[in-house]
Amino acid sequence: MGKRDKKDEAPPPGPFNNPFAALSVQRDALPAGPPPPEPRGSAPKPEPKGPARAVVRMERKGRGGKEVTVVEQLGLPAAQLDTWLKALKGGLGCGGVVEDDTLVLQGDQRDRLPALLEARGVRKVTVG
């Protein structure tokens, strides 16, 4: 009687036969693996280097009564001003433009802007 008939076998439990189902019971008996690596963000970040200061003020004159927030005295080259403007517009959810060596952002952003500037490395933010 070496071979068993397929008719004598019990049907597999559940909707299908999972050959790895018996292994899940033995999972607790496995030895502990190496500890997980530390997240990369846990190391203290070096302070981002940025301009020494920035002056933030609100302006309406010459703009048809519309409010804009002006960021002056950053002392950045023109290429970096475009990069900073794009990042600030994305962070604030507003429009803006570079005029001469200043950033002009739409709306009154004086409350939210200093935190973003400090995160980009500006050491002193003066709000006027």
Rank of each mutant, 00 (worst) to 15 (best):
S24E: 15
S24C: 06
V25K: 15
V25Q: 14
V25F: 14
Q26G: 13
Q26P: 07
R27H: 11
D28F: 08
A29V: 13
A29G: 11
L30I: 05
L30V: 08
L30H: 06
A32V: 15
G33P: 09
P34L: 14
P35L: 07
P37Q: 04
P37T: 03
P37V: 05
P37W: 07
P39A: 00
R40V: 09
R40C: 01
R40T: 07
S42L: 08
K45A: 13
K45D: 07
P46S: 12
P48E: 05
P48F: 04
K49N: 09
P51M: 01
P51A: 04
A52T: 09
A54R: 01
A54Q: 03
V56F: 09
V56M: 03
R57S: 06
R57W: 03
R57G: 02
M58F: 00
M58S: 10
E59K: 03
R60Y: 05
R60M: 12
R60Q: 11
R60V: 10
R60T: 14
R60N: 10
K61D: 03
G62T: 02
G62E: 03
R63S: 10
R63C: 00
G64K: 10
G64S: 12
G65R: 12
G65P: 08
K66D: 07
K66M: 06
E67P: 01
E67Q: 10
E67Y: 04
V68S: 00
V68N: 04
V68Q: 05
T69N: 02
V71H: 00
V71C: 03
E72T: 02
E72F: 01
L74H: 02
G75K: 10
L76Y: 05
L76F: 06
L76A: 03
P77F: 06
P77H: 06
A78K: 13
A79N: 12
A79C: 01
Q80P: 08
Q80G: 01
Q80W: 00
Q80Y: 05
Q80D: 15
L81A: 12
D82P: 05
T83M: 15
T83R: 15
W84L: 14
K86Q: 14
A87S: 14
A87N: 13
A87D: 15
A87F: 04
L88Y: 10
L88Q: 02
L88R: 03
K89G: 02
K89H: 08
G90V: 05
G91M: 10
G91L: 09
L92Y: 12
G93N: 12
C94E: 01
C94L: 03
G95P: 02
G96T: 12
V97I: 07
V97T: 11
V97E: 08
V98C: 04
